[in-house]
């Protein structure tokens, strides 16, 4: 336990030193600010491109559009940046051999994996929270109050999906030696999940439901219950993946 906390601290320091924390923070701060702004300015931009004499009616933007931007940005570029930033999570230290020193001094391998996952999850949580807060503040500033439902729950789903991806990434990092191996595993994982959605009944249980249904949730067209199955499965899968990563890493020749 003690080792775990020390190693989490060391990881967080390392993220600060290697600019991972900075990149994540700045990217999500920029998202947070631009989400409402883009929602507000899009109609004006479109109308300035429409030729003279032509009239098109664009619906007045609302807080809902700002949150649509939030989910679109965090789910696409946001998750990609997250996975890219942490792609070298294990491989760089294994390659440099810095881990072996610590392990021979009695640091348990289990603590390494758990601490690495916790530290990544902390950075991800911080990024989601700061981006959501900024989007919220600026949306309130720009738009009249709109009835939004399930906003916090929807953000929680996004957060959980990110946590799931990090677990896939970490398992990938224990399985494959190279820096880009973990990326490949994560990419393949997402691809498989997306393809699985072709099966009619699978969508309900698929972790991807957590990020594809966000706007339905916020607009209030669906309630929470349709997502319970996916939520449970994603949480269980995340724990299982971390467990598997611990197992693989403890058997691994370094």
């Amino acid at each position: 336990m003690n080792h775990y906390i020390v190693f989490v601290k060391k990881e967080l320091l390392e993220y600060a030193r290697t600019y991972k924390l900075l990149v994540m923070t700045v990217v999500f701060v920029i998202f947070g600010i631009t989400n409402p702004l883009i929602a507000k300015l899009t109609p004006e931009l479109i109308s300035s491109f429409v030729p003279e004499g032509m009239t098109i009616t664009i619906p007045e933007p609302s807080a809902l559009d700002a949150w649509a931007q939030f989910f679109k940005n965090s789910q696409q570029v946001g998750l990609i940046v997250l996975v890219l930033v942490f792609s070298g999570v294990l491989s760089s230290e294994v390659a440099k051999g810095t881990l072996i020193n610590l392990l021979t001094k009695g640091l348990s391998r289990q603590a390494v994996i758990l601490a690495k996952y916790s530290a990544m999850a902390l950075v991800w949580s911080w990024s989601v929270v700061i981006s959501a807060l900024l989007t919220w503040v600026y949306t309130v500033y720009l738009f009249p109050v709109d009835p939004l439902s399930n906003l916090v729950f929807s953000i929680f789903c996004l957060w959980l999906f990110g946590g799931f991806l990090l677990a896939v990434l970490l398992l990938g990092a224990t399985l494959v030696r190279s820096n880009y191996g973990s990326l490949l595993v994560t990419g393949a994982g997402v691809l498989i999940l997306t393809v699985l959605n072709v099966i009619p009944q699978a969508g309900k249980y698929n972790p991807t439901a957590l990020v594809t249904k966000s706007m339905d949730l916020v607009a209030g067209t669906i309630g929470l219950p349709p997502l319970y199955a996916s939520l449970g499965i994603t949480a269980a899968a995340t724990l299982a993946l971390i467990g598997l990563a611990v197992l693989v890493f403890s058997k691994k020749q370094l």
């Binding site: 900075l22 700045v26 600010i33 600026y138």
Partner: peptide, 17 residues
């Protein structure tokens, strides 16, 4: 400006580091 100022600042921080 309440949007543009922090945006420009964030970009500058990233660019300079």
């Amino acid at each position: 400006w309440p949007f543009l100022l922090p945006l420009i600042l964030a970009q500058l921080v990233l660019l300079i580091t």
